[in-house]
Amino acid sequence: MQSPKQPTDQTPQQSPPHQSPPRQHNSGWTTESLSLIAGDAPHTLLLGTHPSTASLADKPLTPIQNKLRANEYSGPMNFGNPNNSFWNIVLSGLTSRVRHELTYDEILTVLKEGGFALWDVVRSATKAEKGSLDSKIITAMSQYNPVLQYVEEEPSVQRVVMPKNTAEMLVTSTNKEARGLLSDKKDGRPGFAVLTDGPVSKATLEVFRKKAFRNLTTMTRSELEETRLQGARVVELVVVCSTSPANALLRGYEKEKIWFAAAFEIEEDEAPPFYRCACCGVVGTHILATCPARTSEWRADAMKRNGELRKTWNAWAKSGREGEEPSLDEFVWAI
């Protein structure tokens, strides 16, 4: 993983992005995406499909939900469902701070200083009914953000990372901008590549190998590095697991392991130097997914503690927030 970049005076300081309110019309329910989040010279662009209703703050959340999503921030935020693992994974890869300790502005600063940018593929999404599932988006009525044009114009970007649903929306037949850049190979334009020997090659190839894009090729990691050494710009496309709570087949620590390998280039037997294992408490030696002390009994105990902490928070809020704010020191997001 590339080392997080140090703050500079040139790093843009962006406030939390906002969006137009949802619009209901005869064709369905339409929502708008949030703004591009990017600092100075990001190396990786992370993509989502479109904000969920929880991300758009379309309905009130409980105090504990607001606390867990970003230190009681209740406004629109990317990946704003408190049960979505995205921000927990990003922060565990880039800092020793946890999500509920930071404001949303502070979270975005960590993301940008770590060399990551964040955007959505679908700018304007229309669904037949109100909801969050990507599968409900009517592609024929969608409008798209120029994400690959941004990649073309930002020479520092080396990798684009996205879940499968997002990747499929990127190359859907109605997304003319993205399909055009993947198809039009010409001088001065970056090429795109899918690795055949990467940690998530199978998932990535499942999306992209069926597409006959002239500006997209497959290669090994060593071939990619050699091509870059020769001066050619090639941007790697990476498909990872969804961090959404709808992806219930994987636990949080399993999602974290996949994202660490694919987006942060952290090997399975390694951990960020500040990473504290939620199970054994050891710092900087391994991640939760590979902890030798992790057992089903430990997970059951952690789930019980999480439930008790939620009850304590809800009772505190119901009483008018009398007394000291309950601690979340023992809360384990990754179970």
Rank of each mutant, 00 (worst) to 15 (best):
P4I: 10
V240A: 07
T166S: 06
N88S: 13
S124D: 07
N88C: 12
L61T: 08
P82I: 05
L45H: 09
G307A: 14
M169Q: 09
T53S: 12
A125Q: 03
L91Y: 03
L229S: 15
A128D: 00
P82C: 08
L56W: 01
V157N: 03
C277W: 06
P16F: 13
K185S: 15
L118E: 01
G307E: 06
E168Q: 14
E325D: 03
P60C: 14
K257I: 05
E177G: 13
G48N: 05
E177S: 14
A70S: 12
L181W: 01
T174G: 09
H50M: 05
S85C: 13
F331P: 00
E223N: 04
R228I: 08
R251V: 12
I258D: 06
A263Q: 04
E267A: 15
Y275R: 01
N165C: 02
P7G: 13
D197Q: 06
A41P: 04
K127A: 00
R294Q: 08
T53N: 13
A302G: 12
T285Y: 11
T227P: 01
A232R: 07
R97N: 15
E129G: 03
T196Y: 10
K211D: 01
V171E: 04
I258H: 06
L328T: 02
K304G: 11
D197C: 06
N314W: 02
R99S: 10
T243M: 08
D40V: 11
V235C: 00
D197A: 06
A232W: 07
H43K: 09
S132R: 00
D184C: 10
I64K: 01
A125R: 05
G131A: 04
P21F: 10
R305S: 06
Q65F: 12
V110M: 05
L45Q: 00
